[in-house]
Nucleic acid binder design. Structure first.
Lengths: 219, 219
DNA sequence: ATTACTATAGTGCGAGTAA
DNA sequence: TTTACTCGCACTATAGTAA
């Protein structure tokens, strides 16, 4: 796979480089990965360049440890697996606030949608959505939502216009109750739309570019 | 990384192909993986060829599901992560019995080793080892042992010969208490040596080529 | 022993495109 | 719309070897 370095990183972690420096020769990493010593050496160099591992080079060998960034990478992948095999827990999706074109407001204000939101989400949404551009690292988590059930909001036709089926996921954003809304027939996107009972931007003092975390409990 | 297909497989799992057929276009998989539609198509073909996914081709698209073998692969990788981040659980290492050269017996029968085994493992080992060739898929699990602490057995010098430090891991083999013994200064190997209070071969009716499972609890 | 350079062989990518 | 072929190019592997 293109640009995948987590496999090598995971093997280094298994070899003890997760929490402290470990003596790891390139030959040994190569054996563990099933590649040559030379390829393993280059891999280590690349990981160091990407600041995923830190190196200490001695006269006869090197010591390696996985950086904070590397640990984050591995933890995220672990979380993906955990959600697959132990579907109980919470998704923590990170992203940055940005301004949309105001379509969200138009959709939310549709009475047929609004009625269902109020009934099924147990709160009446403020007429507008908060647009969040999901961090690329969290895209697989966001995608699990795309492929999960959620709370179904039925589509309808109004004045010749079709409003499609939508699904919702209750969650929290910066400590406030909210819901992530996703069109059922959606294309691949990194835009997450969040609604709440209040105007999130003013309530949470959010501006474009602010980093936010949305927590969605999964069963 | 060379020959790594678990990333694509994991993404397919997230998209719902883990437990049932899911409609997944090559374009969408490509978007999810950050590669082109063509590359994703090739990847799917390769996964199907490796019997990690099963395909159903329709007139306008395909349905995919992950096979038993694919699930095993993902579960194993999940287990590796789990051991990294939640170091409580058990390693289950699989392999096949084979005949060594009888060196095991020579080592175990050394009084200085034997005394320590009896004292630290709480059982007197039968004078011989069971050689197990670890399945390649379980090598990362076996490696976690190589890089773990274990019960330390001190080396010594006897009649001009050096007997190195050895570490042990208590476990179970087919329901019988045993210990995996690993030289501290070991080279990369897929040979796991197991000792127990009895002759495992006769006690468990094992022959060369038999598949066995060794369970090692980790804290 | 190591790490890691250079040269070469091989694999995998995306673009274009057929079906 | 799909899937998936060929082709040209770039990336990545290993072998040989220096330090």
């Amino acid at each position: 796979m293109k640009g995948d370095h987590t496999t090598a990183l995971r093997h280094l972690a298994i070899m003890g480089a997760l929490n402290s420096f470990a003596d790891i020769t390139s030959g040994r990493l190569g054996e563990s990965l099933g590649i040559s010593q030379q390829a393993a050496s280059r891999e280590i160099l690349k990981l160091a360049e990407m600041r995923l591992v830190e190196r200490q080079i001695g006269r006869k060998g090197q010591r390696l440890t996985i950086t904070k960034a590397g640990q984050e990478l591995l933890k995220r992948e672990y979380l993906e697996y955990k959600l697959l095999f132990e579907p109980a827990g919470r998704l923590m999706i990170h992203g940055t606030v940005f301004s949309g074109l105001g379509e969200g407001k138009y959709y939310i204000s549709q009475p047929r949608y609004k009625q269902q939101f109020t009934k099924k989400l147990m709160f009446t949404p403020y007429e507008g959505t908060l647009n969040i551009r999901v961090n690329s690292a969290d895209m697989p988590l966001f995608e699990t939502l795309t492929f999960s059930e959620g709370i179904k909001i039925d589509g309808f036709v109004s004045r010749g216009r079709t409003f499609g089926d939508v699904k919702c996921f209750l969650g929290m954003i910066q400590g406030m109750e909210c819901a992530v809304i996703i069109p059922v027939r959606t294309h691949y996107t990194d835009v997450m739309e969040v609604i709440a009972s209040a105007h999130l931007r003013s309530e949470l003092s959010l501006n474009d570019g602010d980093l936010v975390e949305v927590v969605v409990p999964m069963e």
